[in-house]
Simulated assay, not measured.
Amino acid sequence: MTILDRLAALGITLPAPMPPVATYVPVTIAGHLVTVSGQLPAIDGKVAVTGKLGQGVSLDEGQHAARLCLINILAQLQAALPGGLASVTKVVRLGGFIAAAPDFSQHAVVMNGASDLAVAVFGETGRHARSTIGVASLPLDAAVEVEGTFWLG
C-alpha cells in the first residue's frame, strides 16, 4: 500500500499547500534531508483552530489541530518533492509548538495528533524523534504549529 493509498484509506485528501505567511520557504532539501517549515492547522488556507490550549481550546481540538498541521506538512512534501510523498522513506523528527495557558501541561498529548497520523501514514518509518514546546502565542493566533524533518531514500 502506498502512502497515497494509506491517506485515502484514512479519508484524507491533501489540500493545496498553504503559501508562507512571512519571509521563508516552506520546504528546504539538503541532500537526503528535507525540512518542512512550521505548518498551521489550516483548512482551505484559513487557520481552523485558534486560541490557547487550556484557555478555550480543548484537548480534542488541540489534537485535531496537530493532525491538520501534519496534513499540511504532507501537502508541502507532495508538492515540493519530484517523486512526491513516495520519495519519503523516514520521518526523522517532528517539532510541535502549542499555544497554551501558563498552567497547561498536556502538550505531548496534543502533539500525538500529529505523531499518531505520521505512524498511520508511514507505518514504522513514521516513528520519529520529537520536541513539543508550549508557547504564549503563534502566527495568526493558531493553537498549534508543527514542523518536520524527513529522509529521502
Rank of each mutant, 00 (worst) to 15 (best):
G51D: 00
L53W: 01
L53V: 00
G54S: 00
G56S: 04
V57P: 04
V57Q: 01
D60V: 03
G62N: 06
Q63K: 15
H64N: 12
H64Q: 14
H64P: 02
H64R: 07
A65N: 08
A65H: 06
A65D: 10
R67V: 10
L68D: 12
L68C: 11
C69H: 09
C69A: 08
I71R: 07
N72C: 11
N72I: 08
I73N: 09
I73M: 06
L74W: 12
L74G: 12
A75K: 12
A75D: 06
Q76M: 11
L77S: 12
Q78L: 11
G84P: 14
L85G: 12
S87I: 08
V88T: 08
V88E: 12
T89A: 14
K90E: 11
V92W: 08
V92N: 11
R93H: 14
R93C: 08
G95E: 10
G95R: 13
G95P: 03
G96N: 04
I98L: 03
A99C: 01
A100G: 01
P102W: 02
D103I: 00
D103N: 05
D103C: 01
F104P: 13
S105L: 01
Q106R: 04
V109M: 01
V110A: 00
V110K: 04
M111S: 07
M111V: 07
N112S: 06
G113L: 02
G113H: 04
L117R: 08
L117C: 10
A118S: 13
A118M: 04
V119R: 13
V119K: 12
A120N: 07
A120R: 05
V121F: 11
